[in-house]
Design a protein around this nucleic acid. Structure first.
Lengths: 155, 155
DNA sequence: TATTGTTATACTCTATAACTATA
DNA sequence: TATAGTTATAGAGTATAACAATA
């Protein structure tokens, strides 16, 4: 059945009026974040790494011997949710738990040898991906401006 | 038990080195988005509105008589996930489904009278919230710059 | 008493496949 | 055959409460 004139006027693909939400910072942040995470996935699927896994490895790499609670806090994650993340990375032999000498409730986290090589690869993938993102927004000055604005939002 | 000197050096609250992830656009986007959504929640808890519900109401308000599939696409949502959202708003008598005259598979969406008043309130809350966000990042020029950068990321 | 890692659990958001009724 | 709305379901991400071991 063909659409009536009234229906055409009402539902034609004349694009919707999205002006009310288009300038909402939170809305646009959410869309940009979804978009960049999808891109992240295409870059990191080969390594089987999710965003939180990459940032955890990177953090352990630069801060060996730290406690889970410290890392979780730095990543703004709940301790409880950090546990399965660490389990997964440990089962892949990328990181290891070592007993703490000073507090037997806790332990410290280190990259394994395999983890160090793996992280080096991941850093390369990330550097390529980041270069693409920086180019997309217009260069490093634009990137710096963006990070500064995002930092203000986070405060 | 007190920590040994070695432990102090290794795990003191000397803050972690987060330099590797701090300049990653995706990471900072995710944190900013989480932060602003948490703020959204404090503002909209009184109205019992979540972000997707507000944007859906706003979109229907500016585009009465549209089909769910059109709205879902504009919001970058799956049709399937749009269904319970519409159900919730309809059960609260904020929107209504009307039979389409031209296509009996589909229907069109409208704000109810209650929904119009409710949306007016929500727009006020949103305007206050947005003003706070704009002030936080340094004014409307900063906001425009941010939206432009986010638009480039989304492309 | 308080803290650390952990478990269990629940809720939201998102993605996919398949069904139905229409087109 | 294809499309619109729907259902069912599964996977992530996230939040809270409570427990055992230890401080």
């Amino acid at each position: 059945m063909t659409a009536s004139f009234a229906d055409l006027a009402a539902t034609a693909d004349s694009t919707l009026d999205t002006s009310a939400i288009d300038t909402i910072i939170g809305y646009r942040l959410r869309r940009a974040q979804a978009s960049i995470f999808a891109e992240f996935k295409t870059h990191f699927d080969r390594l089987g790494l999710r965003p939180a896994e990459y940032s955890t490895l990177a953090l352990i790499g630069d801060n060996p011997g730290r406690k889970p609670s410290e890392l979780a806090e730095a990543l703004d994650m709940q301790r409880a949710n950090f546990v399965p993340l660490v389990n997964g990375l440990e089962q892949r032999d990328l990181i290891e738990r070592r007993k703490s000498t000073s507090d037997r409730r806790s332990f410290t986290l280190y990259l394994t040898e395999k983890g160090q090589g793996f992280l080096a690869d991941a850093h390369k993938v990330q550097a390529e991906f980041e270069a693409k993102c920086i180019a997309a927004i217009g260069g490093e000055k634009a990137r710096d401006a963006l990070l500064a604005l995002l930092a203000e939002i986070e405060k």
